Simulated scan of single mutants.
Amino acid sequence: MSKVRPMNCSILLVVIFLSSLTVYDNPPLLVSAASHGASSAYEILQSYDFPVGLLPKGATGYDLDEQTGKFNANFNKSCSFSLEGSYQLKYNSKVSGYISKDKLSRLTGVSVKVFFIWLNILEVTRNGDDLQFSVGIASADFPVDNFDLIPQCGCGLNCDGETRKILRSPFVSSI
């Protein structure tokens, strides 16, 4: 089994986060931005202790079932971009999952290209100042402040000619 590089894991984890959300059997009590007191999907992320940079710029709306934590973020179209010129991320027009304090689980709609294959990011967990991204068989930790800026479709974090380096995790652990 080949090792996954830490930077590749961060992208992979973001993708898993966005692509592993599942639907519960109970009918959801959906909350819109206005009724939740938040005006955007990014503010919902922050209310659960996550940084805004987990989603790319352009979320057009969201739904949140406060009883189950089921979360959907909507975009006008699918989106892809590279980070540091090597990690590619893909977001579908709908990103879903379950959100609770410090945990995003069962994500769908986000994937990361690791070497030559696309992997779904399934879960993102916050542990203090680190985010752990899981693609099922592997996970990687990255500093939360790597995700303070919102990436843009097409250009990621290098839209103004300035490149922001993502700090790498010192290790990749397998699950």
Rank of each mutant, 00 (worst) to 15 (best):
K90P: 01
K90N: 11
S96L: 04
S82I: 00
V4T: 15
Q67M: 07
P51L: 06
P56F: 06
N26V: 10
L119H: 08
T22Y: 09
K101N: 12
V52S: 12
V95R: 07
I117R: 14
T125C: 00
N8V: 03
C155S: 07
S93W: 04
N72A: 08
T68A: 10
P143D: 13
I175S: 13
S20N: 09
P151F: 03
I16D: 13
I11Y: 08
D130Q: 12
Y98E: 12
L18Q: 14
S80M: 04
I150H: 05
T68E: 08
S105I: 11
L122R: 01
T22D: 11
D130E: 15
G109E: 00
L21V: 10
D49S: 09
S78T: 01
T163D: 12
A138G: 07
F81I: 09
V112C: 13
D65I: 06
Y87T: 14
N74I: 02
L18E: 10
Y91V: 14
V31I: 09
E162A: 12
C155W: 01
S82T: 14
G61Y: 05
D129E: 14
A138K: 13
L13D: 04
S35Q: 03
A33M: 05
V110K: 03
C155P: 03
Y91N: 15
S39Q: 05
L167T: 14
L21W: 06
P27W: 10
N146S: 01
Y42M: 00
S96E: 13
V15R: 13
N76Y: 09
I121L: 09
Y48I: 02
T125K: 15
L149F: 12
L30K: 06
S139C: 10
G97K: 05
K94N: 04
L64T: 02
D148M: 11
G156E: 02
G58Q: 03
L12M: 14
N158Y: 10
P170S: 11
I166W: 10
S39Y: 05
R168G: 07
C79K: 15
F115I: 03
E123S: 15
K70M: 11
L107G: 15
R5I: 01
S2T: 13
P151W: 01
S39P: 00
A33D: 07
S111F: 01
S169F: 03
S96A: 14
L18N: 15
D25W: 06
P151T: 02
S93D: 14
E84W: 09
V31K: 08
Q67N: 14
C9E: 12
L131T: 07
I44P: 01
F171N: 13
G156A: 01
S20W: 05
C159A: 00
E43C: 00
Q67G: 01
T22A: 09
S111T: 07
I150P: 06
D130V: 09
A33N: 10
I44R: 02
S19E: 11
S40D: 00
R164V: 15
F147V: 03
V23D: 09
N158G: 04
